[in-house]
Amino acid sequence: MGKQMVMSVMSKDRPGIVADITGVIYKLQGDLADLNQSVLCDYFTMILIATFEDSVTPEDVVAAFSHIPSETRLEVVVKEMKIPMEIAKAKRSPETYILTAQGKNKSGLVHRISLFCYQHGINILDLATTLSGDQYTMILQLDFSAVESVDDIRSSLTSCAEEAGLSVVLQHEDIFKATSEITLF
C-alpha cells in the first residue's frame, strides 16, 4: 500500500520547476496522484499527493526538494496523510454550490464571506479571487451537505452581501457543468 504524503511547495516561478519537483518524487520512486498548481503574480505554488515506499519519511522528501535550485528558497511542507486518499475523496459532497460575489474592492470582503460560510456550517472546497481595477470578484465552491435549507442560506447570504456591498449569485454546481461542459448525463 505504501505511505501517502501530501506536499506543498511555494517558490518564485520559473520554467522547469514542475519538472524538477516531479523529478524528485520520481527518484524517490514515489507514485504521483492528485496535483494542483497555480501561479499568482510570478509566484508558483503547488499542492500534490504521492505514495512512497514505507521506508521513505517526510524528512527524506524535504531533503530531496532542498536540492532544487530556485531564485528564492523553495518553501516545502510534507505531511503523511492520516486518512487514505480514496476515503477522503469519497467524502466529497454531491451538494456542491458555486457562490460568486462581486463588488467594489475593500478590505475584509473574503473574511466576511468565509465567516458567513463558517457560521452556516458550509465548508469552502475551492476559492479563487481576482482584482480587476477596483472590482473584486470571488468564486467559491461550497459543500452544502450540512445545509438544511438552501432558501434560508440564500436569503441570509443576500442580506450579508448587501451590507458588504457585494452582489452575490449562489447556484448549484450542476448548472455550471450543464452550461460549460459538453457531456452532461
Binding site: I98, T100, A128, T130, T137, I139, Q141, S167, V169, Q171, E173, I175, F176, K177, T179, S180
Partner: peptide, 16 residues
C-alpha cells in the same frame, strides 16, 4: 474543473 470565466458567463446569464 470549472473555469472562472465560464462560471462568470453563466452567472451573467442567470443574474442579469
Amino acid at each position: 474543473m470549472l473555469r472562472s470565466d465560464h462560471i462568470l458567463a453563466t452567472v451573467e446569464m442567470i443574474q442579469k
